[in-house]
């Protein structure tokens, strides 16, 4: 049997999966910093808001959030395309996990650094932007990489709200050809290659950001 047409279909799906992953990660990154720094805010209301966001999105599963975004939001007057619902649910969910990473990394920066900032009369924004964050980014990277892989794997569920991602196309191929091993083995390998690409990229970024820092940090 000739599978080449179906393999092309799966590759099209791979493109959709890659697009979802990239857009989801972009949203997750923004939310991680907004909510993570929000939890460290001076203002109680901001802290409470950030905590509520983090607990809510970590507490309910991404699957439920996706269905809620897709089926319930339209009833409340927010019409989303399946792709928008997918990016929204994935980004907000993984962003909540990332926020705890940001908070932990920022808090791990030594007291003396903050005191030095006060001594130099930096504003809070300057201290965060030029002193704390540049140091905090490096320890965040490995966990961000894992979060990105979690997001990649979570994209498979968007196939259930009829986005034609890789898993969806594999199901199409299964339904039309009756072959089960070829479609699922193919997409498994592609997902795994994507995951390897993400962890490779993170390692490269880590090397780039720690260049010249040998011996400076423990």
């Amino acid at each position: 049997m000739d599978y080449s047409g179906y393999i092309a279909l799966i590759l099209q799906g791979a493109l959709v999966t890659a697009k979802l992953t990239v857009m989801g990660c972009a949203l997750a990154l923004v939310m991680a910093f907004v909510a993570g720094l929000g939890r460290l805010s001076r203002f109680g209301a901001v802290r409470a808001l950030a905590t509520a966001y983090i607990e809510f999105f970590r507490g309910t599963s991404v699957f439920v959030q996706l269905f809620w975004a897709y089926f319930v939001l339209p009833l409340l007057g927010v019409e989303l395309t399946p792709l928008q619902a997918g990016v929204l649910a994935l980004g907000l969910n993984v962003g909540a996990y990332g926020a705890e990473v940001v908070r932990g990394a920022v808090q791990s920066i030594g007291r003396e650094q903050r005191e030095a900032c006060v001594a130099l009369n930096l504003t809070r924004f300057q201290a965060m932007r030029w002193v704390v964050l540049p140091q905090a980014i490096v320890p965040m990277l490995p966990t961000f990489g894992n979060n990105a892989i979690e997001l990649l794997k979570a994209t498979a569920i968007v196939s259930l709200i009829s986005i034609s991602d890789m898993t969806f196309q594999a199901q199409v191929m299964r339904a039309q050809t009756g072959s089960t091993l070829v479609p699922f083995a193919t997409i498994m390998v592609i997902y795994f290659l994507f995951a390897l690409a993400i962890s490779g990229a993170i390692r490269a970024l880590e090397r780039r950001l720690t260049r010249g820092l040998d011996g400076v940090r423990a």
Partner: peptide, 21 residues
């Protein structure tokens, strides 16, 4: 490493659709 890098949903499909074959 492979199992951890691929989606649970796809693994479920494999167990549910491929194994019977």
């Amino acid at each position: 490493e492979f199992v951890r890098g691929t989606p649970l949903l796809v693994q479920l499909y494999v167990l549910f659709y491929v194994l019977p074959d």
